[in-house]
Computed example of a mutant assay.
Amino acid sequence: MKDVREEYHAEGLTEASLHNDPLEQARRWVDEAIEAGLPLPNAMTLATVSAQGQPSSRVVLLKGIEGGGFTFFTHYDSRKGEEIAANPKVSFTMFWQPFDRQMIVIGEAHKVDPEESESYFASRPYASQVSAAISPQSQPTSREWLEEEVARLEKEFPSAPVPRPEQWGGYRITPSEIQFWHGRPSRLHDRFRYRRQADGQWKRERLAP
Rank of each mutant, 00 (worst) to 15 (best):
residue 205 E to M: 13
residue 129 Q to T: 05
residue 74 T to M: 13
residue 121 F to Y: 12
residue 68 G to K: 10
residue 12 G to Q: 10
residue 4 V to A: 12
residue 141 T to G: 11
residue 50 S to D: 01
residue 204 R to H: 03
residue 197 Q to E: 14
residue 185 P to C: 03
residue 142 S to N: 09
residue 146 L to G: 00
residue 189 H to E: 06
residue 23 L to E: 05
residue 183 G to E: 02
residue 57 S to W: 01
residue 191 R to G: 00
residue 154 E to G: 07
residue 65 I to F: 12
residue 32 E to N: 05
residue 7 E to F: 07
residue 29 W to A: 05
residue 208 A to I: 05
residue 56 S to T: 05
residue 23 L to I: 10
residue 4 V to Q: 09
residue 188 L to H: 08
residue 36 A to Q: 00
residue 160 A to Q: 04
residue 18 L to W: 10
residue 48 T to P: 02
residue 12 G to R: 12
residue 156 E to A: 15
residue 54 Q to R: 05
residue 120 Y to I: 13
residue 154 E to N: 11
residue 144 E to C: 12
residue 124 R to I: 12
residue 158 P to D: 00
residue 135 S to T: 08
residue 155 K to N: 03
residue 92 F to P: 00
residue 8 Y to N: 14
residue 25 Q to T: 03
residue 44 M to E: 04
residue 40 L to Q: 10
residue 95 F to G: 00
residue 68 G to Q: 13
residue 30 V to G: 02
residue 3 D to N: 12
residue 57 S to L: 02
residue 177 E to T: 09
residue 76 Y to H: 14
residue 154 E to T: 09
residue 156 E to D: 09
residue 25 Q to F: 01
residue 129 Q to R: 05
residue 45 T to W: 07
residue 9 H to Y: 04
residue 13 L to M: 06
residue 103 M to H: 03
residue 11 E to W: 10
residue 119 S to W: 03
residue 205 E to T: 14
residue 42 N to C: 06
residue 127 A to N: 10
residue 74 T to C: 13
residue 123 S to K: 12
residue 140 P to V: 15
residue 191 R to F: 02
residue 149 E to I: 15
residue 99 F to W: 12
residue 109 A to G: 01
residue 17 S to T: 11
residue 203 K to N: 11
residue 121 F to E: 02
residue 175 P to F: 11
residue 181 W to D: 00
residue 85 A to C: 13
residue 188 L to M: 08
residue 209 P to T: 04
residue 206 R to M: 02
residue 131 S to R: 11
residue 49 V to E: 03
residue 108 E to S: 11
